[in-house]
Amino acid sequence: MDFAIALLAGPQDPAARSALEFSRAVLAAGHRISRLFFYRDGVLVASQLNVVPQDEKDIGAEWRQFIQDNHLDAVVCIAAALRRGVLNPAEAERWDRPAANTAEPWELSGLGQWVDALQSADRAVTFGT
């Protein structure tokens, strides 16, 4: 079975952990994830500048590692990212900002990527509101 998974909640929201655990379970069960789409506050997971307290797990780092380890397509909604200050090097340069705070494995792209994933996946699952 082919899954498209969207995360709309930020890294501090329990939905971010639930989405990650669900994604791990999908792959462990032998299914496929065609695309992970990060939207609304979910784009904050892609920021490399988030600092978490020492007694908490870094959900952004866990997502990055999971995506890299499994060679997954991870798309961050560019409109939501720009609104929240999540920039890759190209967007930082385009908008004349002093630095970028995201890079591989995240791809900044439009909402059309989510629509495309919905058309090809067997199941779509969304976490957060």
Rank of each mutant, 00 (worst) to 15 (best):
I67S: 11
H31D: 14
L111K: 01
D58I: 08
V43R: 03
W106Q: 00
E21Q: 11
F3T: 09
R84M: 10
A80T: 03
D116S: 13
E21R: 09
L82F: 02
R24N: 06
S34L: 13
F127C: 06
A103T: 02
L108P: 02
A6S: 14
F127T: 08
W106R: 00
V115T: 15
V75R: 09
I33S: 07
G10F: 10
A90S: 13
N70T: 08
D69R: 12
V125M: 08
R24G: 06
F38I: 13
A19V: 01
G42W: 14
P11C: 13
A103M: 00
N50A: 09
R123V: 02
P14A: 07
L8R: 14
D116G: 13
L49F: 09
A90D: 15
R24P: 06
A117Y: 10
N50D: 09
A16V: 07
G85W: 13
V26F: 12
D116W: 07
A61P: 05
D73A: 05
L49G: 07
V76C: 00
E21C: 01
T126E: 02
S109N: 12
P105W: 04
A61W: 04
V75Q: 06
I67A: 06
R64F: 04
A117N: 12
W63M: 05
D13N: 15
P98L: 03
T102P: 00
V45Y: 07
L87M: 12
K57W: 11
F66C: 05
I33K: 08
F22H: 12
A90M: 12
V43M: 03
A121S: 14
C77L: 00
H31N: 15
G60V: 11
E93S: 06
G110M: 08
S18V: 00
L7A: 08
R123M: 01
A79T: 13
E93F: 01
E107K: 05
L8V: 11
A121N: 03
Q65Y: 04
I33R: 03
D41Q: 13
Q113S: 15
F66K: 08
D96C: 08
D13V: 06
E104T: 03
E91N: 15
P53C: 10
A80H: 00
T126H: 02
L49Y: 06
W106N: 00
R64P: 03
E104M: 01
V86D: 11
L44Q: 10
L8Y: 15
V26A: 14
M1L: 13
R94P: 06
A99S: 10
D116K: 15
V45M: 12
R83V: 05
P11R: 05
L82E: 04
V75C: 10
L82H: 01
A29R: 14
D58Q: 06
Q54T: 05
V51C: 04
L49C: 03
A16R: 03
E91D: 15
R123Y: 03
S120Y: 01
V115D: 08
L111R: 03
H71K: 14
I78S: 11
D2T: 15
I78R: 06
C77H: 02
S109Y: 02
L108V: 02
A19H: 00
E56T: 05
L82G: 00
F66Q: 06
E21A: 05
D69V: 09
P89G: 12
S23W: 09
L44Y: 07
L87C: 12
E107M: 01
H71D: 13
E21P: 01
Q113I: 02
P105Y: 02
E21H: 04
